[in-house]
């Protein structure tokens, strides 16, 4: 089987030559990951879809300028990061931790209820982080990117990424720990 990046390389080359079908393949390979990233960044489906779509369209428009200094994915995520950081996302009421913890007993099966609550708590923790901390944390935790890759995706130095992650984790911990202590997570 081909390595994902080898596959990307070939598709990028064809896209640069104007092959829209090749670009469509790139979109299909990365839509899941990019949508998840955008969802984590803005916390709702509508904005996540809009941002992911806009990032792909921009990527097509700028593909001739992509010189392969990073992977296609990192380059795509950089475009998306800029869009996500600059976008004023739909304002959602900030969920208070106490509200989440005091959610009424549900008739849903225990496990799915816990899972749902965990998702809400984690997204609430992410929502509270400054966007650059949030982006670094999401790319590290969910995408498994190295600090070097995150640095490229965010346009920052490796050192700045390290300090963003230290602060992001501290902040997320401060928010999540009361829930963990009460065994809701």
């Amino acid at each position: 089987m081909k390595q994902p990046t080898d596959q990307d390389t070939e598709l990028v080359v064809r896209s640069k030559a104007g092959d829209l079908a090749a670009f469509e393949e790139l979109v299909k390979l990365h839509e899941r990951g990019l949508f998840a990233y955008m969802y984590r960044m803005c916390g709702n489906r509508d904005d996540a879809e809009e941002l992911a779509q806009a990032a792909f369209v921009r990527a097509w428009g700028g593909i001739s300028g992509f010189r392969g200094e990073s992977s296609f994915k990192t380059w795509l995520f950089r475009i998306a990061t800029n869009l996500a950081i600059n976008k004023r996302t739909r304002t959602r009421p900030t969920v208070e931790l106490s509200e989440l913890l005091a959610a009424p007993e549900s008739r849903q099966p225990e496990e799915s209820f816990r899972r749902k609550r965990r998702e809400e708590l984690v997204q609430a923790a992410l929502d509270r982080l400054p966007k650059d901390q949030r982006a670094a944390l999401v790319l590290s935790v969910y995408e498994g990117m190295s600090y070097k890759e995150i640095a490229r995706a965010l346009g920052k130095t490796v050192r700045a990424v390290d300090s963003l992650l230290v602060r992001a984790k501290q902040n997320a911990r401060r928010f999540l720990e009361p829930a963990r202590k009460r065994n809701v997570l």
């Binding site: 839509e31 949508f35 097509w60 965990r118 984690v122 935790v141 969910y142 984790k169 999540l176």
Partner: peptide
């Protein structure tokens, strides 16, 4: 630290919409 990171990692994200690629191509 590990516990916090694992808690975050364990939270799921909804699936991407099936029509995303179609929309991108249509816009292009």
């Amino acid at each position: 630290l590990k516990a916090a990171v694992e808690t975050i990692r364990a939270a799921e994200v909804p699936d991407s919409p099936l029509y995303l690629a179609t929309r991108v191509l249509a816009e292009i």
